[in-house]
Write a protein that binds this DNA or RNA. Structure first.
Length: 677
DNA sequence: ACGGATCCTACG
DNA sequence: TCGTAGGAT
């Protein structure tokens, strides 16, 4: 699973910042009355009071633990406040937490402007503060400061004996300011001050408290930010000096290490008889490689020594979006139309999130994947894996819904295999669906400032046929996108008709205002979705926009079903330098109900300029190289826009000035740009 | 090198 | 527990 990365440079300063019981804090910010009370966030309420997914520190001290049910929590702590995760479309809706998460990432990335910042999860970031720490050491080393921040003095310095009160803070100060310290430790000392300041700012800007680990690499900072915050208290920061690493690891239970909490960790315990990380040291690198393969073996050898060369990626946005739901036990889905109903819900949510991503971050996803889990009762291998399927992603709710359903049916046929779709003349299916999810991946940036492209995709979101005409439509037409790209290419073969119940399925489709309205559609009895004569939605009178994907497919053999514009952007974005600059293009949506921190003003011009600088040299396509038939199929506005992109007016190469005024300041404010309101 | 499918891991 | 994510193979 894990892979080894040799340590590249010696003295990095890496911080892992982790929000304390994040969902609880989000709810407490929304409902300040809850602050200070034992609180937990639960998801669903029906069964045993719902499942706890986040627990406040007050509740933890009452003995409430994550992965208790709501009722257990009430028993352990009668005064606990249980807040429910919002529900939308019949499923948990995590959007409020997601946007609070991007709010945090946005603030952190701005504060850490001088260093790389990586969104590690909804509430965690890694920071590479090496440069900031080095500049501080050069310009304003801690010992030169007249006073050290109180927050910094509260840090835990591992390996340092801990006494209470001022003595403790005094010794922290001494450690930070020690003149004869190892350079690596001095850098960590700077890291302490920087992170303390950053955490204070995050609290001020977002009202969320967080904990942090500061060390020389990701593995160490992660581990100790987790260990420390998991211990007892929120809002802690922990430093791992070089010299303390070995001893701390030596007695650390192996299962506590990231990546070793599961099967691999268990295997180490049982197969090698190991309990602590220190125990791993006895095994030679080759021995570990023999047991666990070359990659995992070397990784283990390294991690036992706290070595990890993994770099902090400058990525502030997620790499995929997914929407899923489980249907445990008796709630398992037993009919195709029920599956379709839920796929429609999930697809709707997914589309909504793709739309925001497009709007806010100018990104488009290009792959749609369907995952499901299932079992077949009353049969030998009742727990065969349900295969995943993917296809090119077409923008538009109805398209995603269609494609998802088609992917599902393809997967189901494969899953059922020889059993065939209709094993007995019985009424009910033999399969049960216990989980469904749709996800969108391979997300690429599109050049900013191309407004017509935005309009193009927006127009794609309207369903021309039914919403305008009001005619009931048979909506399960096969589209080339999903059906052709599914594994079974025997397109000529008529697929076995799936039994379909008479049922009213609610389709929802966005109208022009992006608000949703419901349209009831009665599925035909034999909605043998499977006629492979691709039925196109009747191209609607009013709509200019064409489904470019298909037409292009006809003229261009490869890339079936893939909107060519995605190809173009993909190629564009594949240019070597284009990425890694996620720092600057931090169009992270700072959709806070309080401050509106649009980070753009400062940066966007710079980004645009950069984009323009690369145009001529780094576009994967030159205008003449784009297949004319592809180009012609694009909406006129986009053609025009692309032409202007492809033939840029050359501008003087203004070497991207490293932001920062260069004025040396003795204040740490130098390392942070205060947020402007 | 790349992409689809599968598996594993982690966490609120 | 569920709903999401990321990474390795």
């Amino acid at each position: 699973m894990p892979v080894a990365r040799p340590e590249t440079s010696d003295a990095r300063v890496i911080a892992h910042v982790d929000m304390d019981c994040f969902y609880v804090q989000v709810e407490q910010r929304k409902q300040p009355e809850l602050r200070g009370l034992p609180t937990a966030v639960v998801q669903y309420n029906e069964w045993q009071g719902g499942a706890l997914i986040a627990v406040s520190y007050e509740a933890r001290s009452c003995g409430v633990k994550r992965s208790m049910r709501g009722e257990e929590a009430k028993a352990a702590c009668p005064e606990i406040q249980l807040v429910q995760v919002p529900v939308a479309r019949g499923k948990a809706d995590l959007n409020t937490y997601r946007s609070a998460g991007s709010e945090v990432v946005g603030v952190v990335s701005i504060l850490a402007q001088s260093g790389k910042c990586e969104r590690a999860s909804i509430d965690e970031v890694y920071l590479d503060l090496t440069d900031a720490a080095e500049s501080m050491l050069a310009d304003a080393p801690p010992e030169s400061l007249e006073s050290i921040d109180e927050e910094a003095l509260k840090s835990h310095i591992l390996g340092m004996s801990r006494e209470d009160g001022d003595d403790f803070k005094e010794s922290v100060r001494d450690w930070i300011c020690r003149k004869d310290a190892d350079r690596r430790d001095k850098l960590l000392g700077c890291g302490i001050i920087i992170v303390a300041e950053l955490r204070k700012q995050v609290l001020k800007e977002t009202e969320f408290s967080c904990s942090a680990g500061i060390a020389h690499n990701k593995a160490r900072s992660y581990l100790f930010s987790k260990l420390a915050s998991g211990m007892n208290k929120p809002a802690q920061q922990t430093v791992v000096p070089y010299a303390a690493v070995q001893e701390l690891l030596s007695s650390l239970p192996i299962k506590k290490m990231k990546q070793l909490g599961g099967k691999l960790g268990t295997s180490l315990q049982t197969d090698l008889g190991i309990d602590t990380v220190g125990d791993l040291l006895q095994f030679s690198e080759t021995k570990l490689q023999e047991h666990y393969g070359i990659n995992t073996g070397t990784w283990l050898w390294n991690i036992a020594r706290g070595i990890s060369g993994e770099e902090v990626q400058g990525r502030l946005l997620p790499k995929s979006h997914g929407s899923g739901k489980t249907f445990p036990g008796p709630r398992a889905l037993r009919s195709l139309s029920n599956v379709q109903h839920w796929l429609n819900q999930l697809s709707e949510e997914l589309y909504e999130r793709l739309s925001s991503d497009l709007e806010q971050n100018k990104r488009i996803a290009s792959t749609l994947t369907l995952h499901a889990s299932a079992f077949r009762s009353k049969d030998s291998d009742s727990h065969k894996k349900f295969p995943s399927k993917s296809c090119p992603l077409r923008y538009g709710v109805a398209k995603i819904q269609e494609d998802a359903f088609n992917l599902f049916q393809a997967a189901l046929r494969e899953y059922m295999g020889p059993f065939g779709p209709k094993p007995q003349g019985n009424k009910k299916e033999t399969w049960r669906i216990t989980g469904l999810s749709v996800s969108a991946s391979k997300i690429v940036d599109i050049p900013s400032g191309t407004s017509s492209i935005m309009r193009y995709f927006q127009s794609q979101t309207t369903i021309p046929s039914c919403s305008a005409s009001g005619f009931p439509q048979e909506h399960v037409a096969v589209t080339p996108s999903a059906s052709e790209s599914c594994s079974e290419q025997k397109s000529a073969e008529t697929l076995p008709a799936m039994p379909e119940e008479d049922i009213t399925v609610t389709y929802t489709s966005p109208d022009l205002d992006n608000s949703y309205r419901d349209i009831d559609i009665v599925l035909e009895k034999d909605a043998s979705c499977q006629s492979n004569e691709a039925k196109e939605f009747p191209t609607q009178s009013g709509t200019q926009t064409k489904t470019i994907g298909r037409k292009i497919n006809n003229s261009k053999e490869k890339n079936r079903g893939m909107p060519s514009i995605v190809d173009i952007f993909k190629n564009y974005n594949a240019s070597p330098q284009a990425k890694e600059e996620t720092q600057e293009d931090s169009t992270v949506s700072l959709t806070s109900n309080r401050g509106n921190l649009s980070s753009s003003t400062n940066h966007s011009s710079e980004v645009n300029q950069e984009v323009e600088d690369r145009r001529d040299t780094e576009w994967g396509y030159k205008v003449g190289e784009i297949d004319q038939s592809v180009f012609d199929e694009l909406p006129y506005e986009i053609q025009r826009e692309l032409r202007s992109f492809l033939r840029p007016n050359k501008r003087p190469n203004s070497g991207k000035s490293k932001s920062g005024d260069g004025s040396a300041s003795s204040s740490i404010a130098h390392y942070f740009q205060p947020l402007k309101r």
